[in-house]
Design a protein around this nucleic acid. Structure first.
Length: 723
RNA sequence: GCCGGGGUGGCGGAACUGGUAGACGCAGUGGACUCAAAAUCCACCGGUAGCAAUACCGUGCGAGUUCGACUCUCGCCCUCGGCACCA
């Protein structure tokens, strides 16, 4: 099936299902990111960023399947082999487009502090992802050469303990040194035979080979060997690291395996710590020794002193570094938004002029097994250069789909706009008050969307600094213990349940299963319970209504049982208001309503005031449940005698006077173990509570003849007698 | 490997700020109703001992802090998500 047809059919199916579930979306604002009416504006925006210099092209590593001749996603590389061909995957460098997200690293980091409505764990993950560090960038000499080797370190205090230097296999120095060295060549070749995913690189066995070259220590002038190591990442820092095996565990292990020197220069600052280099590196900060003029300084002092020394000697400078890398937006795929660039042999890469946008993605394509069909379509590729008019080739890469999802929320505000990306309505609606998304998006999507928001702000398209004021990260729905996903084929379609039980039951069941921020193993088995509960509610309301007119409620003339039920109604309302409004724990809100319903079923009071209390209870339950089960409560609200539709009603208000209780139950513990319960006046004083507690029969038994050392009272909850 | 979560009955989960562990629901067991079944209603439902009252044990494992720990601290195990081309 053609991708366009498949996508639109899926959208239609989902829209229909969401409508059947009764979600209150404004469908006039619907956008489909695969429609040219949508993606033309990100093409337009990209060309603006291009001219502004936010966009640039450089080569980057991809997974290359040499049999299928195609680029593979990390997900498609299984145990180092292509998922379809089974061929050993190679790393290959190809030119790609990047957005300078690192220019915004500081702002993206600092603004996290303002996002009070975000879960702390998501902010922490983003902070760690951005990974700001302060260190020193310095230049090691290379023995017998003019050029130098750039190295970034966050621990300049350990500089005097350097015993070797390691570079990435892709480092120019590595390939240079490999000439005439078969062993080194073979090692670099071996490193090419792995995927590009960080997880893969980080878990592989740490290996390296000596280049034979020597690096010259910037301070001592001593020569240390330069190794090529598979754990050094070309993409981070300068692709080279200084190694201090005495004070870094990875360097320590590498030095042990490869018989490299270990030189201790940091010693514990206090007797509480020990540095035993026979077993492990000493990675803490401490006091320098064997460090020449820096000996005796603390790590913090040495950081400054060594930084100053290098700066004065012109051999380095203090530098802030980020783990965050620029965002590669090129994909060698067909189904996506074409990158609006024309490659001219004379003028280079030229953005498509605004008048020629959008660059339409052809839909009349034949999709075969390998590679993007765009790369074989001469009619799409052949064009003329907008600058010189000569013949030129259209870019065949498409955008990362995160590009689309990074600004759709803004487009919702002006989805019908045909002559621009956004208008002033974006400022009216944005930022989004409450954003809901899966926890799997905690870093990538949510960071790209924040970045895009700032880009749009700097282009004058909108005002807010941040796109989402409050964030609720949903846990994932798991099936068979793992994330549901199309590629795993373990998705669950609720359509069958909707057909059988109706939308309200499915909504209730879904909300009752677990709190929204927690992951959940999907199982149909609880659905019956949700269905039964709604039937019970229906029956209870209908039976009550069948009893005829209900007199007005007189709060002061109620029996104890009537009063007790009213107390429960308002206590439940208070709890549910908090659960729904503050905690978002809809499961406990539903459970509280179930408990209340169990109590209501026990009242069985046909008197006028009994029915009045029941009327209030039913109305409160129906109102509390109306956001969760809107259809059944809509009907019941009318049945309970109201003209107005329930969707127009406001949330009920707690009657504080109904919450007052004359006597309360306290748990009595002896040494922290529950030994009994006492019922006592709610306003009883300390002495009365102590007397009642220590007089309880089972408590007396446990105290026996031992002296009571103290009595702890937790108001409204418990009494602990300590003996 | 690194970053962030999670681990509580047969199952999903509750216990919100250190104060009654297992709310609520599912499954199960027993009973009522029925010719019967379904539906519905009632009771029981962590383990061990006991007729019971009750006692002891029990929140992944091991230590610790506290009158009191599912909750806090330290160390470990397992598991889920993310790791830049799944989106």
């Amino acid at each position: 099936m053609p991708p366009a047809q498949w996508t639109h059919e899926n959208i239609d199916y989902m829209r229909n299902q969401l409508k059947r579930l009764g979600f209150g979306y404004d469908w006039d604002r619907e956008v489909a990111t695969c429609d040219p009416e949508y993606y033309r504006w990100e093409q337009w925006f990209f060309t603006r960023l291009f001219r502004k210099g936010v966009v640039y092209k450089k080569t980057a590593m991809v997974n290359w399947d040499p049999v299928d001749n195609t680029v593979l996603a990390n997900e498609q590389v299984i145990d180092g082999r292509g998922w379809r061909s089974g061929a050993v995957v190679e790393r290959r460098e190809i030119p790609q487009w990047f957005l300078k997200i690192t220019d915004y690293a500081d702002e993206l980091l600092n603004d996290l502090d303002q996002l009070d409505g975000w879960p702390e764990q998501v902010r922490t993950m983003q902070r760690n992802w951005i990974g700001r560090s302060e260190g020193v960038e310095m230049h090691f000499g290379i023995a017998g050469r003019e050029e130098t080797l750039s190295i970034y370190t966050t621990r300049p205090d350990t500089l005097m303990g350097v015993t070797y230097v390691a570079v990435a296999p892709e480092h120019p120095l590595a390939s240079e040194a490999a000439a005439g060295k078969p062993e080194l060549q073979a090692f670099i070749e071996e490193c090419r035979n792995s995927g590009v995913a960080e997880a893969e690189l980080a878990t592989q066995e740490k290996k390296g080979v000596d280049t034979g070259l020597k690096a010259v220590h910037p301070i001592t002038g001593a020569e240390v060997p330069i190794w090529v190591a598979n754990f050094v990442l070309m993409a981070y820092g300068s692709g080279a690291v200084m190694s201090v095996p005495a004070h870094d565990q990875r360097d320590y292990e590498f030095a042990q395996t490869n018989d490299l020197a270990i030189k201790q220069v940091i010693h514990p600052a206090s007797d509480a710590q020990v540095a035993d280099l026979a077993t492990a590196a000493f990675v803490e900060k401490g006091v320098l020794q064997d460090s020449g003029e820096f000996s005796g300084l603390s790590s913090a002092q040495a950081f400054a002193a060594i930084g100053d020394w290098l700066e004065q000697a012109g051999k380095g400078a203090r530098q802030v570094n980020y783990r965050l890398r620029d965002w590669g937006v090129s994909r060698q795929r067909y189904w996506g938004c074409p990158i609006p660039v024309i490659n001219c042999p004379a003028c280079g890469a030229v953005p498509v002029p605004e008048a020629d946008l959008p660059v339409l993605l052809p839909t009349d394509v034949s999709v075969d097994a390998t590679g993007s069909p765009l790369k074989k379509m001469d009619a799409f590729i052949n064009t003329t250069c907008p600058e010189c008019g000569g013949s030129a080739a259209r870019e065949t890469d498409t955008f990362d789909t995160f590009f689309e999802s990074s600004w759709y929320f803004a487009r919702y505000a002006c989805a019908d706009k045909t002559d621009g990306m956004l208008d002033e309505r974006a400022n009216y609606w944005l930022p989004v008050d409450q954003y809901v998304g899966g926890i799997e998006h905690a870093v990538l999507h949510l960071l790209y969307a924040r970045f895009f928001n700032k880009l749009m702000r700097d282009e004058g398209l909108l005002d807010p600094d941040e796109p989402f004021t409050c964030l609720l990260t949903q846990g994932m729905v798991l099936k068979d213990g793992t994330k549901m996903s199309k590629s795993k084929g373990n998705t669950v379609d609720p359509q069958g349940l909707i057909d059988r039980y109706g939308a309200d039951t499915v909504r209730l069941f879904t909300m009752f299963a677990a709190p929204p921020d927690q992951s959940l193993e999907w199982a149909d088995s609880g659905v019956e319970g949700a269905y039964r509960f709604l039937k019970r509610l229906w029956k209870m309301a209908q039976q009550h209504v069948a009893g005829g007119a209900v007199p007005e409620l007189h709060k002061d003339g109620l029996t104890d049982r009537q009063q007790a039920l009213r107390q429960r109604v308002h206590a439940t309302l208070a709890k549910v208001s908090d659960d729904v409004g503050r905690r978002y724990t809809f499961n406990t809100a539903i459970a509280a309503n179930m408990e209340l319903m169990n109590e209501m079923g026990r009242l069985d009071d046909a008197s006028g005031q009994g029915r009045a209390v029941m009327q209030e209870a039913l109305e409160t339950v129906v109102l509390m449940l109306s956001p969760i089960v809107p259809h059944v409560t809509h009907v019941l609200w009318h049945a309970l005698g109201h003209e107005q539709a329930i969707i127009e009603c406001s949330w009920p208000v707690v009657d504080e006077s109904a919450l007052v209780q004359a006597s309360i139950e306290l748990v009595v513990q002896v040494n922290g173990k529950v030994r009994g319960r006492i019922s006592i006046a709610a306003d009883a004083g300390k002495a009365a509570i102590e007397a009642a507690a220590s007089g309880e029969e089972n408590v007396l038994k446990h105290i026996a003849d031992k002296p009571v050392r103290k009595i702890i009272i937790v108001p409204g909850k418990l009494v602990n007698v300590v003996i």
